[in-house]
Write a protein that binds this DNA or RNA. Sequence first.
DNA 1: ATGAAAGCGCTAACAA
DNA 2: TTGTTAGCGCTTTCAT
Lengths: 336, 336
Amino acid sequence: MAVTIKDIAKLANVSITTVSRVINNKSEGVSEETRNRILQLVKELGYQPNAIARGLVTKKTKTIGLIIPDISNPFFPDLARGVEDSAHIYGYNVFLCNTDDNLEKESEYINALKEKYVDGIIFTSSSIPKHEHIMELVKSGIPIVIMDRRVDSEDIYGVFLDNYEGGYIATKHLIDLGHKKIGCITGPLYTKSAKERLEGYKKALVENGMDVDERLIFEGDYKINSGIIGTEKLLGNNENITAIFACNDLMAYGAYKTIRSYGYKIPDDISIVGFDDIQLSQILEPQLTTIKQPAYDMGLTAARMLIKLVEGKKLKKKIINFKPQLIIRQSTKNIG
Amino acid sequence: MAVTIKDIAKLANVSITTVSRVINNKSEGVSEETRNRILQLVKELGYQPNAIARGLVTKKTKTIGLIIPDISNPFFPDLARGVEDSAHIYGYNVFLCNTDDNLEKESEYINALKEKYVDGIIFTSSSIPKHEHIMELVKSGIPIVIMDRRVDSEDIYGVFLDNYEGGYIATKHLIDLGHKKIGCITGPLYTKSAKERLEGYKKALVENGMDVDERLIFEGDYKINSGIIGTEKLLGNNENITAIFACNDLMAYGAYKTIRSYGYKIPDDISIVGFDDIQLSQILEPQLTTIKQPAYDMGLTAARMLIKLVEGKKLKKKIINFKPQLIIRQSTKNIG
DNA sequence: ATGAAAGCGCTAACAA
DNA sequence: TTGTTAGCGCTTTCAT
């Protein structure tokens, strides 16, 4: 059996209340002397507070849940690291939950986290069309910060990226480079992020007097394979495309593969812009020009917001929007 | 306030004991009728057991800790996913902890996890020379499974990869391809994994009648940059190297960069073998030949072992060794 | 088949 | 400055 507050109390000849006081640094009303005596015993016996017992009475567990689709998807490790770093700074631990964007798993995790009395939840769900779970969570009163996936509701806290702007600057970059026929491989269009990136693409086109040609748009699913297939389609329909905007880096990698298998060169024959800027985009040859989404910072920020929320502090903003940033590397070329 | 067992008891006109019984399926000794009445109320009121309260009395939390150096390191997401999937199947949640191989952070996490009464810990520490923490944990009686980093002690449970064998087959592959001058960029040599891979390299050389030339060995640190520098050194000393064994994929990527900047071609001028087989190694151009370390399966296995341990089941083996596997792709070439 | 009571380790009024 | 007491929500003997 581990050492308890009771053991310390007995040995120090004080009540458990007093011990509790010094352990929690509520030491007003504890004499310097007893205080030291207790601290000494704590050290000697290697006393560690039982967080479970504490949680039972305080209803706070210093624990948060992080619900994401899949930590194996290269976008999420950085995000998770940001969340965890932030949590660690404030003395919280984080539960990692992978849902695969599966409604049932989401439910299971939400229930488990509630039963374990996490203080709050960071919720990311990139491709679920409905957001029942989110609203349910919000109503249940547990603090929650939404990431990545915009939800339209007044009483929601969230950390988002301006995907519309991202799609716009990606396409604008290509237009500025003199490209006229620009293909687009989108994410799954029932997600807001994918829709917004596509809208940004369209806006850039229209704003520059170009037509939106549906034959140049292919709906992917953010996975490598759809980048491969999408590019085959795009290359196959004889539209003489000179550039592709892949709505995430993984699909851009797929595009690389197809383009090479067709014997074309990047960026000489085809320019490519990706989205996310995951770590390996700088290692690819040629290095991928892409739209950077600051995953680590977003994770850091989300956790910080959540913890402030949990601790009852005022937040300046309910929503924090991150700006995407164009990172020009070697996969795009001026053909002006 | 959430619904408690007490509320249910009152409404069902039974004692809390009875409610507890049906909730925990210890239903022998509960009549079908009261059982149904209770279940009905549970559903109606949306009762959720309070895991904290339960944990306080049972000393079990259905929670495990996963301590790794850094989830952003591409080797770990797959491992973490394996751990989490396994845990989820058995009804456990997992705390993610990133230590950066920093002793102090390791200590902090271990303490926090103990205070939160996790049922067990999976511990990975790729580059800490000492293992005080591990032994401390083992002594403290909390079930623990070590991963990746071999520890010499009888009473330890672990999941490991045979790094020696891995280093051997990587080098052997190169030798079989006719290479005579094979450089090696190692991991940090105070880690066992790095040492073993290097030993495997040496064994293959010796076994094939070749000399071990220290000038062909460069000590890296498993990060991209040391792959870059190591390759510069190796290429710079005029030894006419025709192949490099990079002891992890990240360093192999670094080697790619340097080799290209020297104007050499892979695999025509230099062949490369990596280690790990992280996801992006198949996307690189040319695709990387490497030694596959089954991270996901290792995570799956470690969590399964740990949970069996926690639940007092017998384990057939205390140590499970995974075999590395040579994945031949496009970065190695026969120059026989 | 069911219930009463103790207690897990701690915090938080309230007293003294 | 310190202690007494109740109680968080649950499981678990031990009775009945």
